[in-house]
Amino acid sequence: MTAEFGSELDGQVAIVTGASSGIGEATAKSLAARGASVVLAARREDELDELAAQIEDEDGETLVVPTDITDDEDIDTVVETTTDEYGRIDILVNNAGVMPLTHIADADRETLQRTIDVNLTGLITLTHAVIPTMLEQESGHVVNLSSVVGRFLQSNSTHYNAAKAGVKMFGDSLRLDVASEGIRVATIEPGAVSTELLEHIPDEEIKEGVEGHVGTMQALQPDDIARAITFVVTQPEHVDINEVLIRPTDQVQP
């Protein structure tokens, strides 16, 4: 796979969650283009296989590991499979997420719990499973996908706001614990991005409202976020970009 500016990630191994579509898919392609061996983790195996074929057709290296980020056994499997195959983990991109926006009074407990489980608990659990390998290596890069609404409030989004704010706080706290061991941590906070996340909104009125809001601007594309992530992880080892807030030029509200 031909890299645009070289192959800064040659020999490195990256796990990308939520790799079956959107930001995860674009990030997997971008990291592979820079020379990384990319472990594709998501629930939808058919989509992962298709992505792997695309990357490998361009001479990239991939490993497909179907993964439900809310399943502890799946988390252990993706980490063990990666280390068995490659012997190391250099980059973890915690991208998997759901966005079932609804008013708190209308939300069922399953929706509330799944929002926290996928966006926050799964992210923390996978990071916890990966960190020992990075500590042994004395190097690594954890990239967590938060959101603009982890920083700025959005209505009909209490559970989602809370989960994404938790991602930001987790990343900041993690860095305190591991920076001295050579491990870097970054939080990416996208604004309006054109992905299938909007399809997760169960309330049609809220969904139409969000779609209308996004339609007022030139929304970001998954490739835009992938470029930002790739920029972060290709910095020299002494450079740790802790946080990137990235929004469409014409997005003036969350």
Rank of each mutant, 00 (worst) to 15 (best):
A96Q: 14
P132A: 06
N119A: 05
A105V: 13
E110A: 11
L123G: 08
L123V: 11
N94K: 15
I116M: 15
D117F: 09
V130Y: 05
L101K: 00
E110P: 04
I116H: 13
D117C: 09
E110C: 03
M99N: 05
G97I: 07
P100S: 04
T102E: 13
P132V: 07
I104Y: 13
H103F: 05
I104S: 14
N119M: 07
V118W: 03
P132G: 08
T115H: 11
D117W: 10
T102V: 08
G97A: 12
R114Y: 02
A105P: 00
I116T: 14
T133C: 00
P100K: 03
G122R: 05
D117R: 08
G122M: 09
I124H: 02
L123F: 09
G122A: 11
P100R: 03
E110D: 12
L126M: 15
M99P: 00
V118E: 05
T102K: 06
M99W: 09
L135W: 03
I131K: 11
L101Y: 02
L135H: 08
V130F: 07
G97M: 07
I131C: 12
L101G: 00
I116S: 12
T111V: 04
L112C: 06
P100V: 01
V130S: 09
R109T: 07
L135E: 14
L135R: 15
G97H: 08
I116A: 14
L135Q: 14
L135Y: 04
I104A: 12
I131P: 13
I104G: 01
N94T: 15
H128G: 08
L123I: 11
T125V: 08
H128I: 00
L120Q: 04
P100M: 05
V98D: 06
D106F: 06
R114T: 10
I124C: 04
A96R: 13
N94A: 15
M99Q: 06
I116N: 10
H103W: 04
D108Q: 01
L135G: 01
L126N: 06
R114P: 01
Q113D: 13
I131A: 12
D106V: 01
P100G: 03
A105W: 09
L120H: 02
L120G: 04
T133Y: 10
D106S: 13
D108S: 01
T125C: 03
A107W: 01
L101A: 02
D117A: 15
M134K: 11
T127K: 07
A105H: 07
D108M: 00
V130E: 09
M99K: 01
L126P: 02
N94V: 15
L112W: 15
N119L: 02
G97P: 11
G122C: 11
T133L: 01
D117K: 07
T102W: 01
V130W: 09
M99Y: 07
A96Y: 15
A107K: 03
A129I: 01
L120R: 02
I124W: 04
V98G: 06
A129C: 07
G122F: 14
G97Q: 09
T111S: 03
N119W: 02
I116P: 08
L112A: 09
A96H: 14
